[in-house]
């Protein structure tokens, strides 16, 4: 692996996290009608008779990680310092540390999304490649039409339909939750229940997600198949497997990477809607809860952690990019 390239990626990831922290700080501190003033007003209303101004300030400081009486730059540095140490403040409603709540729910979201994204890309790439090989046939036309239609369906709409038929009409799947209650964690029945509950959310992401990937894989493959080096490879008498795997697939998959980077962010964002529909208590569910209850510390902390999760996901995806594209190893940046 090329060292400079790796360093650049890490720097980029840190920059994104830093931007997000700055953004949440700005939102908490600088916005008109900011969380700070709202929180102060609320605390004053509740405890105004018993609490002094300093006590209220101390409460605000505990919850939001911001000290309203310091100069702005000092607040900013303290906030940044605390956040990098993993202190995201306390949930206003639940009174628990934000990090504790998030550590509990984040794995569930990652579990849902990583399975969904793996299936999306496997189905999309295989289907797209076979469509390209069968270009112009009835199979190609049918798959292109179906893929185009599926791209037009937002995943939450498909989730609604799944719930309507599979939950309320046919009673095949549970409506929500992460696993059935009363099962011993770690037992086989527990894992089966986890998969059972995750099926509908994952299916709704896969079905509405693979179409777009298949369509761009198809277009890329057709373009690659028409290029001179493929003809050259045929003339050299290389085996069909070698041509399709080493020459066509590699070059057709590379442009999908920008899409993958966007897709990771999109899925983590979409988790807010998905988890609400299936009452699946993951990180998106917590973000929405915090938002609706105006639980600012939890909301900002969740937003930050979602961003970090996306950054890590993108970083891992980038590492596999280096495996596919030999130019990364040699350090050629063009």
């Amino acid at each position: 692996m090329n060292g400079r390239w790796l360093l650049k990626r890490i720097g980029m990831s840190l920059l994104v996290v830093w931007t997000t922290i700055t953004l949440t700080f700005a939102l908490i501190r600088l916005m008109p009608g900011s969380p700070i003033s709202r929180m102060r007003a609320e605390l004053y209303q509740q405890y105004g008779a018993t609490m002094s101004q300093e006590q209220i300030d101390r409460q605000v400081r505990l919850y939001l990680n911001v000290q309203p009486d310091q100069p702005l730059w000092q607040q900013y540095f303290n906030y940044m310092f605390d956040t990098f140490q993993g202190d995201l403040g306390h949930s206003y409603i639940q009174g628990v540390e934000v990090t504790v709540i998030l550590a509990d729910v984040l794995p569930w979201t990652v579990f849902l999304l990583s399975i969904a994204i793996m299936f999306q890309y496997t189905i999309g790439i295989l289907l797209g490649a076979s469509m390209a090989y069968a270009e112009g046939t009835r199979f190609d036309f049918a798959s292109t039409s179906v893929s185009t239609f599926l791209v037009s369906v937002p995943f939450y709409v498909f989730a609604f339909l799944l719930i309507f038929f599979f939950v309320f009409q046919w009673n095949l799947f549970p409506q929500g939750g992460k696993y059935a209650t009363g099962l011993e964690a770690g037992s086989l029945a527990f894992y089966r229940s986890v998969l059972y509950h995750a099926t509908l959310p994952i299916v709704s992401l896969i079905v509405t997600g693979f179409g777009g990937i298949a369509l761009s894989m198809r277009a890329n493959s057709i373009q690659t198949l028409g290029s001179d080096y493929i003809r050259g490879a045929r003339l050299r008498g290389l085996s069909n497997f070698r041509i399709s795997y080493r020459y066509v697939a590699r070059n057709a998959i590379l442009p999908l990477y920008t899409g993958l980077l966007i897709q990771i962010g999109f899925l983590f964002g979409g988790a807010v809607i998905l988890e609400q529909i299936f009452s699946y208590r993951g990180i998106g569910y917590v973000l929405l809860d915090a938002t609706l209850f105006r639980d600012y510390p939890l909301m900002m902390g969740t937003f930050l952690v979602i961003t970090i999760a996306v950054v890590i996901g993108v970083f891992v995806a980038d590492l596999t990019y280096g495996k596919l594209d030999p130019r990364i190893q040699t350090g050629d940046n063009s």
């Binding site: 931007t19 999109f266 964002g269 979602i306 961003t307 993108v314």
Partner: peptide, 9 residues
């Protein structure tokens, strides 16, 4: 990289 929907929310 910053996830859109949470930012918008």
């Amino acid at each position: 990289t910053i996830p859109g929907l949470p930012l918008v929310i």
